[in-house]
Write a protein that binds this DNA or RNA. Sequence first.
DNA 1: GCAATCAATCGCTATTGGAGATTAATTAAT
DNA 2: ATTAATTAATCTCCAATAGCGATTGATTGC
Lengths: 295, 295
Amino acid sequence: MDVSDLVIFEAVSRHGSMNRAASELNTVQSNVTARIRALEEDLGVNLFQRHPRGVSTTPSGQRILPLVARLTKLLADVRIAARDDGAPHGSLHVGSLETTTALRLSPLLTQFAKTYPDVRLIVSTGTTRKLLDDVINCRIEGAFVAGPVTHPDLCQETVFTEELVLVTSRQIRRMDELKDIADLKTIVFQAGCSYRQRLDSLLTGMGVITARPLEFGSLEAIISCVSAGIGVTLLPKGIVGPAWQDGRIAVHELPQDEGQVETLFVRRRDAFVSSAVTAFLQLARPRASGAPHAS
Amino acid sequence: MDVSDLVIFEAVSRHGSMNRAASELNTVQSNVTARIRALEEDLGVNLFQRHPRGVSTTPSGQRILPLVARLTKLLADVRIAARDDGAPHGSLHVGSLETTTALRLSPLLTQFAKTYPDVRLIVSTGTTRKLLDDVINCRIEGAFVAGPVTHPDLCQETVFTEELVLVTSRQIRRMDELKDIADLKTIVFQAGCSYRQRLDSLLTGMGVITARPLEFGSLEAIISCVSAGIGVTLLPKGIVGPAWQDGRIAVHELPQDEGQVETLFVRRRDAFVSSAVTAFLQLARPRASGAPHAS
DNA sequence: GCAATCAATCGCTATTGGAGATTAATTAAT
DNA sequence: ATTAATTAATCTCCAATAGCGATTGATTGC
């Protein structure tokens, strides 16, 4: 059993087609067919059901799919570990929430880039759900996400604590005015945004019935919509400061227990910890401010 | 980078010799040399320092060694996962303490063998230290060991709780008589036995100075020695029952907090959980008796 | 009925992995 | 000092095979 065969398997499974997998892998279809057949014979199971319009992954194939992802990651880790003599270098791919990126990451990234110029740092943004999925499936090294998180394969540590505030248009002076608004809309990033369910439960707790939430892709768009009175949203206090001072929006603080959200840095428990990761964590950890809880 | 090359690397590293690695792998030395050189070129580092009397693993090699072990395990898991359709089969290699095996495992094993005849169950015995090492390095699926255990790569659950008792010859009627014995010897299994340090700390707590412990390989030998008055030992209460009733030895109960020891079943957190493992855990778990704590 | 798309198959070739013999370097023993 | 033994490196040769290109057969959609 060869790892390259498993990589081919993964590509075929993802595309549902040997032809498309072949072109992705820069090879020919006959080759893909042969490798898959060899793999199937070696394992003694059918990995795909052949249809006239492609293939679909059998339960056997489904079972090994996550293992293949980990296998390729581990193989990459071998390469990294071999060259990693303690001086951080190579590339480091982390994820972050849109809000965390805007509010907290900038100083961290500049300092990291200055201290470790040999590391190619890549940051992708996404929702907590997507980022967790990326970490679990070894697509990124780690990510800043909104807590709490429970997953057996992940380890986490709290790096920031945000105070969430309800953001509305200037017309709304007190929170309980929201009850009087018919057809109140909530504005969130996109599906999987962890602030969204928080906002929903908060509003339901206040007796406010909310309509279907609107989704936007950027912070600026959200704030604009809120400012225009289209709906309300929930954001970290620090991030709405400028817009607040400009008088574009109104900010309503929440009771302590509902307003606190922890930003965690999560990564796979079994991932190889390169020097670059160590260095990044060192910088990201809250310095001399209480005791951060790691698990 | 090929996994087979990494396997060769592991063998060379273990033997400190390409010749010996070659004969273990049923190939020729020239082949091993070529594969190692190819691997080194691929990774861009020297994995071995060549001496006139063999090779020694460089720091780079040391770093990738544990990853290689996990890689081969993962590759084996792929094979297992592909064939594992839910009906437990294949082989299952677990470890157990000598005492746990004698005291608790027999009914579990017979029931498992009866219920799942398609599983080749293999049990090796050893000390807690050795078993943990075996589990961590993927040599066995899981093991029954004495708690507490803290290791980031392991997950554990309590399956039994043993009451440890101090076992002495019949001459000793009360525990404090031990103080009067000059040159008291302790008798334990072997280095790494977890009961050993417990026994040491217990006796030191009683003000008893102990000599160098004697080590034996079997339960029967230990009990014989204790019976003959050569020394004292610490064993689960259940296991000394027969010898106690025969009047060969004396049993002294310990205070609650010092006498309780938990037998945990540990396994790698990132290991593939086959149907066989699931079935085994199902049988091993304490049934309807309090809430076992899993982590 | 024709074009398009899919996987399977066949023959060919370049690559490569492994075997065997040899070499060079060093150590241990005589 | 010489010899024997052990080590890894190197070379050649051969067989296995991975990948390519072209083709076939089956199926779907227009």
